[in-house]
């Protein structure tokens, strides 16, 4: 390699380092090396303003970008699966009651008793509604109602985006009820709420499987 070639090579190396020299992101050794070279070669120093122009244009180009960005709450809500969302809601609901057991006060106990009474009334109303739906008749454990006698017909996995509301609505449209889950793989075991024929059951399972926005997979049970 001739002296001229060596000089050119050194110059190229210095030119390659100039952007970092200008931004102050070179290590101490390289910073000293570039500074010394620029001292000896003023013609290369004339490139510094070019680098500064590039820098300010790049910064301006980036800062011109505005965005509507997701909040932490939105991100976290999007991350949760339907099951996690329900568990999170339950956790938030139960949390205030913890204080009752750690440091009960007369007021808190009275409030708790009233809340318990309301919950019992709601449960009673809910049970009455469930019994009156689907034309079911009253049944005891020894004589189960129609729904309970229906066998599980399929396993369904829901998409991560599906909300509890949409899942409930779609299942109801197809007269399906969840009987067990979540099972391994995120599946839920379902059965029909009415006495549909085998062909009708097949048609409904096929229809629900097409709801790709909500349903990830449908596995018929043999």
């Amino acid at each position: 390699m001739t002296a001229t070639q060596e000089q050119m090579s050194e110059r190229e190396e210095i030119e390659m380092l100039l952007p970092w020299y200008v931004t102050g992101r070179l290590d101490a050794a390289d910073t000293a090396r570039v500074a010394a070279y620029l001292e000896r070669h003023p013609e290369v120093r004339s490139q510094i303003p070019l680098v500064r122009q590039e820098l300010s244009a790049t910064v301006a180009g980036n800062e011109a970008i505005r965005a509507r960005l997701a909040s932490a709450e939105t991100l976290i809500a999007g991350a949760a699966s339907p099951t996690e969302r329900v568990l999170s809601w339950l956790s938030r609901t139960i949390r205030p009651a913890r204080g009752l057991f750690t440091s009960p006060t007369p007021g808190a106990v009275r409030w708790a008793a009233a809340a318990a009474a309301v919950i019992i009334c709601l449960q009673a109303a809910g049970l009455a509604t469930l019994l009156s739906r689907d034309g079911s008749t009253y049944g005891t454990a020894s004589r189960p109602g129609l729904e309970a006698t229906q066998p599980a017909v399929a396993m369904i996995a829901f998409t991560d985006d599906a909300t509890m509301t949409t899942i409930a609505r779609v299942l109801d449209e197809h007269r399906l009820r969840i009987v067990d889950g979540p099972l391994p793989g995120g599946f839920y075991s379902v059965r029909f709420a009415d006495e549909a024929t085998a062909a009708e059951q097949q048609r409904r399972l096929g229809a629900i499987a097409t709801r790709k926005d909500i349903v990830k997979a449908v596995l018929p049970r043999r």
Partner: peptide
């Protein structure tokens, strides 16, 4: 300066990305 910005935007993705990282994100 605007012309410079336009020309940076016309660079290939690879070239534009490295220019952004060095000048805007100030990466070593």
């Amino acid at each position: 300066a605007e012309q410079m910005r336009e020309c940076i935007a016309k660079l290939s993705t690879e070239h534009r990305t490295i220019i952004d990282l060095v000048y805007y994100h100030e990466k070593s």
